[in-house]
Write a protein that binds this DNA or RNA. Structure first.
Lengths: 250, 250
DNA sequence: CGTTGAGTTGACCATCGTCAACAGGAGTGG
DNA sequence: CCACTCCTGTTGACGATGGTCAACTCAACG
């Protein structure tokens, strides 16, 4: 039971090619997610320091950012695309912890090794900072510490929300909550469009919601049949928010 | 479905009497959990400061420590007993987030309002610090900040573990993991006895594991029939750790 | 001795996972 | 350009896991 053997969905895929290519940060002042991210805690002068220690990392679909258990020598800030965060059981079962959107910060400067794995759901871009350099920065700029701390608190809160979902909700409610929650998190990025990007695969949604791929597909298509939304490639367009919110509660 | 109506399991219970009675801290140097808790980051002189701003809070069974949404004007350190941490749905469904054991720290000094509710599973004792006073202390003693931060990171990790459990494990595996995990967390307190205290009710275990009370009871008693453990009032005695660990993986 | 609340257990059944077949699209190589 | 494979997603049939409901026991407590 429970999504048993995968024919190595998690082996480094050939299609992913090299994990990532990196180049120095240059245009932070043009970064679209800067006002959303921890970076906004810094003024112009401090920003130069940040820029100096960061790299921009472009990720192809499925490219690995870091893996659970690896020594955590970098922290990241997602600037484009969606990054899938997940943990594996020893037998291959997968639990997706969450999806990081543009503006989201990955990795506490305090932990020695990564507590989960991260890879790109579609194409994605992230800023990479060496943990040591970032920790030094945090030490000298209390406002940044505060932002990192806030980010940790928000992560705990999201984890608790998700535990409620996994422990006490029907399949219908899980999928509805997922869509509404995701649309809410996209809002600062895309202005609250009803078109919710879903670059991840059905399998990933299932692994996030504790459902089988079949149930995810059935539920989404039932929602579509009932006129709650329209399914389009790599996205859904929500039509009836209030009815969807109703389903999310059951 | 999903544990619907409760005839107000969460209304302030008459049996609980007054929420708690508090008295000034006096004997921190005799505190049994001091080496386990955030307090151990302080030296003797700093400790005097901590003692001055803390109160000892004795909780009767079911007494409320704080409630979700309340203004978070205190942080706590559990010193005896077990504290149940939970969130409620608007319709009364309950998800237990976790159980705090002696030595566990509750409440980040950063959040404005509590993200979950906390009450005593059995009789319990906690140290209470005003958030403002504690935040001041944290600002002046970086070692304490570090411990609080570590505690937050551990909470995130535990939340992730629990998401794996809720999303991708059978009832059998959930109960087995719960017992083994709890026994591991008791170890620093009780020296790793095979007798695992379970002061919480079956309902709370169910709300923690995302199972119905019936399934919790059935599973525990099946474990007992199969010789994995013995059920005693407010505890279980584990007999076969390796077989239990085996079940925890399914 | 009645009441209340927790825990246990059985009977039944709904939800959701499993398995399988199939469709469509992308990439590859001839 | 087509054939082929691979991958993702959809959909149906079936069955198992675990929820629901209810009855019962037992201990605590008045």
């Amino acid at each position: 039971m429970l999504s048993p053997n995968h024919t190595d969905r998690f082996a480094p895929s050939a299609a992913a090619g090299r994990a990532w290519r990196a180049r120095p940060l240059q245009a932070c002042d043009e970064c679209p997610v800067r006002p959303l991210s921890v970076c906004s805690a810094l003024n112009e002068r401090q920003f130069g320091v940040l820029e100096a220690v960061g790299q921009e990392v472009a990720l192809r679909p499925r490219a690995v950012l870091f893996m659970q258990g690896q020594q955590a020598d970098a922290v990241f800030n997602v600037t484009a695309g969606v990054v899938r965060l997940y943990r594996l059981f020893s037998d291959g079962r997968c639990q997706v912890i969450g999806f990081a959107l543009p503006g989201d910060f990955l990795g506490l400067p305090v932990e020695e090794s990564y507590g989960f794995s991260a890879d790109a759901s579609g194409a994605a871009v992230a800023c990479r900072f060496s943990r040591r350099a970032f920790a030094r920065l945090v030490d000298s700029y209390p406002a940044l510490l505060r932002r990192v701390y806030d980010s940790a608190a928000r992560q705990v809160d999201m984890a608790h929300d998700h535990m409620m979902l996994l422990g006490r909700s029907t399949a219908e409610a899980r999928v509805a909550s997922f869509l509404l929650d995701l649309r809410g998190r996209w809002t600062p990025v895309n202005g609250g469009s009803a078109l919710v990007p879903l670059p991840m695969r059905r399998q990933d949604i299932g692994d996030f919601l504790g459902l089988s791929i079949a149930t995810v597909s059935r539920t989404l298509n039932r929602f579509a049949r009932e006129g709650l939304l329209v399914i389009v490639p790599n996205a859904v367009r929500i039509l009836d928010f209030s009815r969807l919110a109703q389903m999310a509660k059951s």
